[in-house]
Design a protein around this nucleic acid. Structure first.
Lengths: 231, 231
DNA sequence: TGACAATGACTGACTAGTCAGTCATAAATT
DNA sequence: AATTTATGACTGACTAGTCAGTCATTGTCA
């Protein structure tokens, strides 16, 4: 039935072409055993899928494109994921989990609350705003309503924890007299809002009006903690 | 294929169902002349398209569904719009324009700046948060990157004007001594951020954790203007 | 150690289905 | 009757998901 006498060159050659002369991104070992190779494949698929989903959204993304970008045949995707939908869902989980891990490993609360939050904001700036992770946030906002399970997961793992953490910090700030506005503890969203806006702004309007997110967050913290002493 | 001998009742009946017993929204006349009927059709299509696009996103929305919801045959859509893409773009324009008109018709600046902004926030709460318009904002955030022309339009017509207006208000507040934080004028986004977050929250997380947007905005204004005097 | 067998990861042509856009025909309006 | 407007069956391009077949790797045995 299939009329392929010569077969398809070598699959490994195709793979090498698709990604780079050297294997994958982080790991460099020639990946001897099967399991490792499989994990590597899966990682490549996840990576490629994220790029495509971010660029085109769920519905408009073609699995063929993901496969090509991952340097893998389409069928291979189905060895790792049940279908397009559950691939999207698992993808979000896979990418989010390390973030949650980091959130849990919060630094010991030394120094002023303002310093803590400032450090947190700095981190957020570097790791989220204007990065692939920021785009992922926008993707979740975009697809959330069509993927309740994704929205649920994101709320449970990231939002609710983030809100709770921020609330604890705010309460500490209030107890220490650093924060005046007591009601702020009821709406930690207010503390985070400018950061979220910065994420969205970057991917929608940066080309029209670049936003100095760092400076904006500083001003926002001044608003909450009062003008910063000069040093 | 479709076994519909009797035809689809009357289109107007279907339309009436979709919106209300009485035809269309504003106009009530039996729409005698051609132009009026055409405009009505177009409005029905726009209305239906907005519902579908909000519910499914651009790529996953079927023109057949829009046509059915609008009580119109698919071909009719193409009498009003060139194709799906330009329909989406024109749709956003059509829905946004009245909002801009309202923005331009700002009330005369009487009373304190805080009162002005509070009135504005109240309006926003009623007309945007938790309404179809709020969903439209989310839709623009979602599809913006794939429709630069939509993002451009939205930025030009809504965002940049809104930011400018807020900045003027903030500067007034600073001049009058109502607002302490002078740098706020450089980032009117901070003033608006919680409102935007509320919009997004409603459509993503309201089921998990309902958000009292009104109260949150009040707290945020307290933060900016100082605790509100009891009356 | 070298030869051979078993495994299952991987492939990509293929199927079945979907949907944007078209156009011959019909209805309504003039 | 002529013209404009509306219809919806149809088409062709496109794509999610399948599966029979391939072959590098691993395991087994002499």
């Amino acid at each position: 039935m299939t009329k392929k006498p010569t077969k398809v060159a070598t699959p490994s050659a195709a793979l090498a072409n698709a990604t780079a002369p050297a294997p994958a991104s982080s790991e460099e070992a020639p990946t001897s055993n099967r399991a490792a190779r499989a994990a590597e494949r899966r990682a490549a698929i996840v990576e490629a899928a994220m790029e495509e989903f971010i660029a085109r959204g769920f519905a408009a993304t073609r699995l063929d494109d993901i496969a090509r970008r991952a340097g893998v045949a389409k069928g291979t995707i189905y060895l790792h994921f049940k279908d397009k939908e559950s691939m999207f869902e698992e993808l979000v989980r896979t990418v989010i989990v390390p973030v949650v891990a980091k959130l849990n490993a919060l630094p010991p609360p030394t120094g002023s609350v303002r310093d803590l939050i400032e450090a947190f904001a700095g981190n957020f700036l570097k790791e989220v705003i204007g990065t692939r992770r920021g785009d992922l946030v926008r993707l979740i906002v975009a697809e959330g309503p069509r993927f309740p399970s994704v929205a649920d997961f994101y709320y449970r793992e990231v939002v609710s924890r983030g809100i709770a953490g921020m609330r604890a910090l705010i309460e500490l700030g209030i107890a220490r007299g650093e924060i005046r506005e007591k009601d702020l503890a009821r709406y930690p969203q207010i503390l985070v809002a400018p950061a979220m806006i910065a994420v969205i702004w970057q991917s929608l309007f940066a080309r029209h009006a670049p936003l100095d997110a760092q400076d904006m967050l500083r001003v926002h913290l001044d608003l909450i903690f009062g003008e910063r002493r000069t040093t």
